[in-house]
Design a protein around this nucleic acid. Structure first.
Length: 431
RNA sequence: GGAGAAGUGGCCGAGUGGUCGAAGGCACUCCCCUGCUAAGGGAGCAUACGGUCAAAAACUGUAUCAAGGGUUCGAAUCCCUUCUUCUCCGCCA
């Protein structure tokens, strides 16, 4: 959420900045809402002040045993007008809040301008794609004989679900555990286990609601058809990790807070029909090791760079070629001021594909969540929040299968994963 | 799932309809006192959003005693709903 003061004082500037990310700020509507709000709020508060002071008089008169009927008659005349003013004000403020909650974050000045992913800027490339002396297969074909089963996933749940067996399932688990160990042991994150089902407040806090409900899966307790609170499956553990500090005023020395978790993520993938339909690149359910940091505003950009490094470390240890991309204004997510994507090399596609996304949200989420800290002046100040994948487990599995495939159909297991595989060095169809 | 109890400021805790944004204590900040010892005295100390204002300061208003509704001229106090916590019983991985 943007600071409403910023919109009040610099509406045109905000509109221009948001235009860079293809968002059209309806300045006329905002202005109209604000004008109406100002008049109505002042009016309502005047009426409330009048009622309060008259009611106080009644109390004093009664306390002294005097007759208060004249004052009571006066104040009761306020009733209807006050009630209607309060109702109109509440409705209006709800509109203003909703308007604000649907505005994306302002891109940082250093973010390249662009309309879509073609405007992203490559920052660096690490590792060299391997030369294959045989025809490379994609992960679906490589995995078919190794326990990667899409048909069963589809039978159980529909398209975009996967079922894994045997060493393939174990490799998937090994990747997740390896990532978690890297982030906790080497980068100082605290491992967390979090709920996978959350309430609407949590999703409002990180920005998935109210605007992107269609991208989520919703759940209800059994037998509550049409009633009861709607809960949602998390689309990322960014939601639970970040919201763990929702509504809190932190002490300055608690910062930075560094959290990580391995969780499944659930996404409806509305609007991605026809994209990445083959294989497990784009799934309704996938696992991810997430990193979240809650930091002092002054350090958030240094933290962003550090977190990109934390994600890169995983790819480097797995010896997978990748590149770092600075996303342009048109390709960034709703809550981010600045985002770096990591893209891993997929030989079957002859392309780099997204495997991690690391973003600074500055105070955008903190303002929604009301997460603050006591600053040097003893004042409450919003923290900055950052999140990043460290990494997406399913896509890492894809990358391992494709990059480590052998001519005989087996897959060499990267060195760093072998301890998690009981020393196994290779996936084979006999395995 | 059943029965009961409870949710007040950073923490503890008083407060059952009226000068309550809320006593008292702890913690914290500042000042005074004190030649020692976790001593004493005084003051301050919630947040958000408005208005006056270019802005800051200041002044002022409104809201907030789990959340949301209701009763009332007036609600921390009464009623309803929801959430959460605790105790007992049941069930359960």
């Amino acid at each position: 959420m943007l600071d409403i003061q910023l919109l009040r004082t610099q509406l045109e500037t905000v509109a221009q900045t948001l235009a860079a990310r293809k968002f059209v700020l309806d300045t006329a509507s905002f202005q109209a809402l604000e004008n109406e709000r100002k008049v109505l709020q002042t009016h309502t508060q005047d009426l409330q002040a009048k009622r309060n002071s008259l009611s106080k008089q009644i109390g004093m008169l009664k306390g002294k045993g005097e007759d208060a009927s004249a004052v009571m008659a006066e104040v009761s005349g306020l009733g209807d007008e006050l009630k209607s003013a309060e109702e109109r004000l509440a409705a209006l403020q709800e509109k203003v809040t909703d308007f604000l909650q649907r505005l994306p974050n302002l891109p940082h000045a250093s973010v390249p301008i662009g309309t879509d992913e073609s405007g992203n800027v490559e920052v660096r490339r690490v590792g060299v794609p391997r030369d294959f002396d045989f025809e490379v297969k994609d992960h679906v074909d490589v995995g078919a004989s190794l326990g990667l089963d899409f048909e069963t996933g589809t039978k159980l749940s529909g398209s975009r679900f996967t079922f894994m067996r045997g060493q393939m399932a174990r490799l998937h688990r090994a990747i997740a555990q390896f990532m978690l160990d890297v982030q906790t042991n080497e980068h100082g994150y605290t491992e967390c286990y979090t709920p996978y089902i959350v309430n609407a407040d949590s999703l409002l806090g990180t920005g998935q609601l109210p605007k992107f409900e269609a991208d989520l899966f919703a759940a209800k307790k059994g037998g509550q058809e049409g009633e009861g609170e709607t809960l949602y499956l998390i689309p990322t553990s960014e939601v639970t990790l970040t919201n763990s500090v929702r509504g809190e005023v932190l002490a300055a020395d608690q910062l930075p807070i560094k959290l990580t978790a391995h969780t499944p993520c659930f996404r409806s993938e509305a609007g991605s029909y026809g994209r990445d339909t083959r294989g497990m690149i784009r799934q309704h359910q996938f696992d991810k090791v997430e990193m979240v940091q809650i930091v002092h505003p002054e350090t958030s950009y240094a933290t962003l760079d550090a977190m990109v490094g934390h994600a890169e470390a995983v790819l480097q240890k797995l010896e997978l070629p990748y590149r770092v991309m600075a996303l342009c204004t048109g390709d960034m997510g709703f809550g981010a001021t600045k985002t770096f994507d990591l893209e891993v090399w997929l030989p079957a596609q002859s392309a780099y594909r997204e495997i991690s996304s690391v973003s600074n949200c500055e105070a955008f989420q903190a303002r929604r969540m009301q997460t603050r800290f006591k600053n040097e002046q003893g004042k409450n100040e919003f923290v900055h929040t950052l999140n990043g994948s460290g990494l997406a487990v399913g896509r890492t599995l894809v990358a391992v299968l494709e990059n480590y495939q052998q001519a005989d159909g087996s897959v060499i297991i990267p060195q760093v994963l072998r301890p998690y595989m009981g020393g196994l060095e290779r996936l084979t169809s006999r395995g």
